[in-house]
């Protein structure tokens, strides 16, 4: 991660502080959201989550790999309006071959060791979002977009 970017450090800190996020997928233009457990790679270029292949979200991403994840630090109090920060990670997803890329499973399990059995199940897919951009929002309305090099 480039050291000169304070804001990426803020994004890294937010991602590290959260375990769950909202996944937005689309089925022929119809949006659908789900809560998923996620983990981030050290360079922040990739976010990983798991899902069984029978779910609606998996069906949606099989048909349209463009997705977004929303990670935020709301506390469900009125202070959120001035205090909370949120980041949207946008990009395309692909299923990871768990055997061929065990390092991806490690990244995920480091953050979510309790999901070991769930990840290991043959019906569960490990999915990677290759992040194209982060859109950071804080101070209620302040929005900055970070486009990562391809």
């Amino acid at each position: 991660m480039p050291e000169d970017h304070n804001q990426l450090r803020e994004i890294a800190a937010l991602l590290a502080s959260q375990k769950l996020c909202v996944l937005a997928t689309a089925d022929e233009g119809v949006p659908y959201t789900s809560i998923v457990a996620f983990a981030e790679t050290a360079d922040l270029h990739r976010l990983l989550f798991v899902t069984t292949r029978q779910t609606r979200k998996f069906r949606n991403i099989s048909g349209n790999s463009n997705v977004a994840l929303l990670i935020d630090n709301r506390t469900n109090t009125e202070e959120d309006l001035h205090n909370a920060a949120a980041v949207t990670a946008a990009g395309t997803v692909q299923e990871i071959d768990k055997d061929a890329q065990p390092e991806c499973s490690s990244v995920f399990l480091d953050k979510h060791p309790y999901l070991q059995d769930f990840l290991a199940a043959p019906t569960t897919a490990l999915v990677a979002l290759d992040v194209r951009s982060y859109i950071w929002v804080d101070h209620f309305q302040h929005v900055v977009q970070y486009d990562l090099p391809a």
């Binding site: 000169d4 859109i135 309305q141 929005v143 900055v144 970070y146 486009d147």
Partner: peptide
């Protein structure tokens, strides 16, 4: 720097 930073909405 290498990452492209674009303000999308500034207050």
């Amino acid at each position: 720097s290498g990452i492209s930073v674009t303000a999308r909405q500034l207050t």
